[in-house]
């Protein structure tokens, strides 16, 4: 039976579900190394730049990059508390997002911050990336925690 919300105008319910088989391509080692507790970034030897999120191809020179392990230590560049979210993440609010500056990395990395003391979060605070013991093979397998 079609669900009907209104007769004039006539409003009915439609839905749509899609399953994707999503490949991480050449960035796959980032996710598989997280499962081993290692944080990997990509480095362009020609431009001397290190990218995280990783890129197989350097955007500056289009040469292929190489994987390098990073310490995962860094600082908060900016952060915010999410009191609302897209439908998929409404169950998680409130949660904390930050762009972090990481040792040896030229880009900023967007990640969640997990902390029992959110009131102490501030720009410039030292953090360290942590990895999940049971991987979900998603970007949520890595997050930041205060390191001071």
């Amino acid at each position: 039976m079609t669900e009907v919300f209104s007769i004039d105008p006539l409003i009915i319910k439609n839905d749509y579900y899609i399953e994707y088989r999503h490949s991480y391509g050449k960035t796959s080692p980032f996710f598989t190394n997280l499962a081993k507790g290692k944080i990997m970034a990509t480095h362009c030897e020609h431009c001397n730049k290190t990218y995280l999120p990783p890129r197989n191809d350097c955007p500056e020179c289009l040469r292929e990059t190489k994987w390098v392990e990073i310490s995962g230590k860094g600082t908060i560049h900016t952060f915010s508390t999410m009191y609302f979210a897209g439908e998929k993440f409404l169950k998680d609010v409130p949660f904390y997002l930050a762009y972090v500056e990481l040792e040896g990395v030229d880009t900023l990395f967007l990640t969640r911050i997990k902390t029992k003391n959110p009131e102490k979060l501030k720009i410039g605070m030292k953090i360290k990336l942590k990895t999940a013991r049971d991987p979900e093979w998603r970007a949520t397998d890595v997050w930041a925690e205060p390191d001071e």
């Binding site: 991480y24 960035t27 999120p53 915010s80 999410m82 609302f84 979210a85 897209g86 993440f89 998680d92 949660f95 997002l97 967007l110 990640t111 969640r112 998603r138 970007a139 949520t140 997050w143």
Partner: peptide
């Protein structure tokens, strides 16, 4: 970005 930004709970107001 749906590999790195959206999956951690990223959305535009964030």
């Amino acid at each position: 970005d749906t590999d790195f930004d959206f999956p951690v709970g990223g959305y535009y107001s964030g």
